[in-house]
Design a protein around this nucleic acid. Structure first.
Lengths: 121, 121
DNA sequence: TCCTTAATAGTAATGATTACTAATAACAGT
DNA sequence: ACTGTTATTAGTAATCATTACTATTAAGGA
């Protein structure tokens, strides 16, 4: 495993924000720094970072989003505008005697505050 | 909204099992009953049933899976064999003052019992 | 500096899902 | 039951995120 400037850049872009970026956005940002970077390279690096547990993948109905590893938290996805909001205020307890659990994804679905307001208007 | 035999069939296939079927499997089963049914029709009906809250969509890394609406439960997806296992033994509490929550998806990731055993061999 | 080979850039391919359109069939009104 | 309207379907083309492929480049150890 070699450390390339492409890997460092993709990692830095994800960790430069608390937003949840998709591969295309990361690619567009990366091109500003390394114009020759390839979209396929971004995808390959994203897979590698996820496998190494350095980046979190959020699977949605359309495209995947990528997030920094942070305090463990859940996500709220608005069914109207598809915005993703971090959720910290929850507790989860579980028992799983048979299977080994490495991680979990908790995603709430509904209508966000902004869309709720716009509906009333 | 009209009730067609295609809609009834797709619904019945999903409710005939506790398995989590993908669109292609549902299509293949449906063809046994209605050979002329179209894959696009299956997708359209699946979207409709999900929107109506009659069927549950489980988004995974590759293709979506569909499940009957049942006692609310979580899922465990094995990272090795991609098997999906229903999980009932958990408790979740949350506060969401700003957003309206309609539903949540809870997915555990890890290694299932079968794959764990096979690794040891 | 040199060599090995992992990683990249660029592009073609894949595969799930959706869009489109002419033909069909629910079903409300008669 | 018959008819007309129009939602739905079958079949296929298109879309779009992601992956595969390959010649070229560049980490990084010796």
């Amino acid at each position: 495993m070699r450390n390339t400037k492409q890997k460092k850049l993709v990692y830095d872009i994800i960790y430069s924000t608390y937003d949840h970026l998709d591969a295309r956005s990361i690619y567009n940002q990366a091109k500003l720094e390394i114009p020759s970077i390839s979209l396929a390279t971004v995808y390959r690096i994203l897979n590698e970072l996820c496998d190494l547990g350095k980046v979190l993948r959020i699977a949605t109905d359309n495209e995947d989003n990528f997030d920094r590893i942070d305090t463990k938290h859940a996500h709220f996805i608005c069914s109207k505008c598809n915005k993703i909001i971090d959720i910290f205020d929850y507790t989860l307890k579980y028992k799983m005697p048979d299977n080994i659990v490495y991680n979990y994804d908790l995603v709430f679905h509904g209508i966000c505050n902004d869309c709720k307001r716009n509906e009333v208007k």
